Simulated assay, not measured.
Amino acid sequence: MKKRGWIIYNGNLPGNKFLDYAQWIQEAASKQDSQTIIIKNNELLSFLGTNQLELLAASKMELPDYVVFADKDIYLARQLEQLGLRVFNSSHAIESSDDKITTYQQLAINKLPIPKTIIAPKIFATGRIDSKSIEEAIGKLGFPMIIKEAFGSFGEQVYLVNSEEELNLKVLELQGKAFMFQEFVSSSYGRDMRLQVVGDKVVAAMKRTAANDFRANVTAGGKMAAYQPTEQEEKLAILATKAIEADFAGVDLLFGPDKNALVCEINSNAHIHNMYDCTGINAADYIVEYILGQPDDE
C-alpha cells in the first residue's frame, strides 16, 4: 500500500527557504510513488479540551501515514505524535537540536568530542550574572572565547570575544537569554564541515570556509566545496545524530587541533539545497527512502 505524507513548514517566516525544503521533499516523495501535501504550521491549529485533542483545520482531512516536519514548532509536532502519527524528525529530536545547550549535554553524556563548554546560569532579565561565574569561565577557557546563545540559526547568535571587557559587554547584552561560554577552537577558524546523515549513513558532505569570519556558515558569506570525510568524521556525525535521537540531520564538525573532529552543531532540519548545489547529491531522495522504509508499527 502506498504511503501518504504531510510536509509541514513554518508559514510565518519571510522568504522561500523553508518552502523550498518542503518542495524538495515532496518531489523526492513523488519520485518514490508517495503522495504528499505541503501544509503551513499555522494551518494546523492544535486544539485541547476535556476529552479532546485534535487539529482544527484538519478535521476534514484524512490523517497521513507519516509527517516530515520541516519546522521548529515543537508543540505542533508533539500534538501530531499524540494523535498517533509518525513524525520525522520527532518532537524530541527537534527540541534537542533547537536548544544547543541540550545538544551539548546529550553529546557529553554520550561521550562524544565537543569543545569545552560552560553553561551560563539562568538569569532573568531583571537580574545580572555574578562576576564569579565570568571569572570561572575566563579561568577555564581563556581568550579568545566563544559565546553562544542556546537558540539561534545560521551562526547569527554565535560571538567571538577577545577580552574581559568584550565578554562583560556581551554577557550584559544577553541578559535574560540562555547562553554558554565555549572554548574557541583556533584550528577550525573560518572553516568547518557539514555532513548530511540519514539513518546510519553519511550521504553527502561539504567543507565550508570563510576568509574574514571565524564562522564558516554559507549564509554568513562562507564558501563551500564537496568534501570526503574520514571514517572517524563519518562515525562521529552518525553518533551525534543518534545522540539526539534524530532520524536524519546535518551535522557540523570542527577541525580539532589534533586533526580529530569535534561536534559543533546538529541541525534536525538542515537545508539541503546548498548541499545539492555543492555536491550534486539530493539528500531529499535519501530522506524519503529512509522514511518509506520504516515499519508501519514504529
Rank of each mutant, 00 (worst) to 15 (best):
D99W: 05
T36K: 01
D98K: 10
K31W: 03
D213C: 09
A93R: 06
A243H: 01
V251S: 00
I146R: 00
R4P: 03
D73R: 03
S187M: 06
K140V: 04
L292N: 01
Q294M: 11
D252E: 12
K132V: 13
L174V: 11
F88V: 09
I38M: 05
F143G: 02
G256H: 07
P121E: 07
D247G: 10
T102C: 11
Q175M: 10
E164T: 14
E149R: 12
Q182T: 07
Q26W: 05
G5D: 04
S91R: 01
A240N: 04
L76M: 09
K223Q: 15
M224I: 13
L55H: 01
Y290W: 11
S131W: 02
A284R: 02
F151Y: 14
S30C: 10
T219W: 14
N41H: 13
T219E: 12
A249G: 10
V158Y: 05
V67I: 15
L239Y: 08
Q294P: 05
V87I: 15
M180G: 08
P229V: 06
Y9W: 14
I37K: 12
P257D: 02
Y9S: 00
H271F: 12
T241W: 03
A284M: 04
E95Y: 06
G250P: 04
L56W: 11
N89Y: 07
I244M: 10
A58G: 08
E265V: 05
K100S: 09
V263D: 06
Q228K: 14
F255H: 12
G49L: 10
K17C: 08
A211S: 14
E289G: 06
C264W: 06
K177G: 00
L48E: 12
A211Q: 13
I8E: 04
G11V: 00
K3C: 03
G190E: 11
D297K: 09
S90G: 09
S187K: 09
S163H: 14
F214L: 08
D73I: 05
M61T: 10
E289M: 02
C264S: 15
R208F: 04
K31L: 14
D71L: 01
G176F: 12
Y9A: 02
D130W: 02
Q157R: 14
P295Y: 05
F179E: 01
L141V: 11
P14E: 13
A150V: 09
V197Y: 07
G221L: 10
E135H: 10
R191P: 07
V158W: 04
V203E: 03
F184K: 02
I8P: 02
V198A: 03
Q52E: 15
M1Q: 06
G139N: 14
I114M: 11
L53S: 12
E81V: 11
G190Y: 08
T126V: 09
A211G: 13
Q175W: 00
P113C: 08
P257A: 13
E149D: 13
G155I: 01
K140G: 04
K235V: 03
V161A: 11
T279C: 01
A243R: 07
R78D: 12
S153I: 10
I272N: 01
I281G: 05
I138V: 15
D73Q: 12
E166R: 09
A211W: 08
E298R: 10
N269I: 15
N162S: 14
P64D: 11
Q105V: 09
L141E: 05
Q175E: 08
N10Q: 13
L141C: 07
W24L: 14
I281Q: 03
I134A: 00
Y104F: 13
K60L: 12
T36N: 01
A77P: 04
N274G: 15
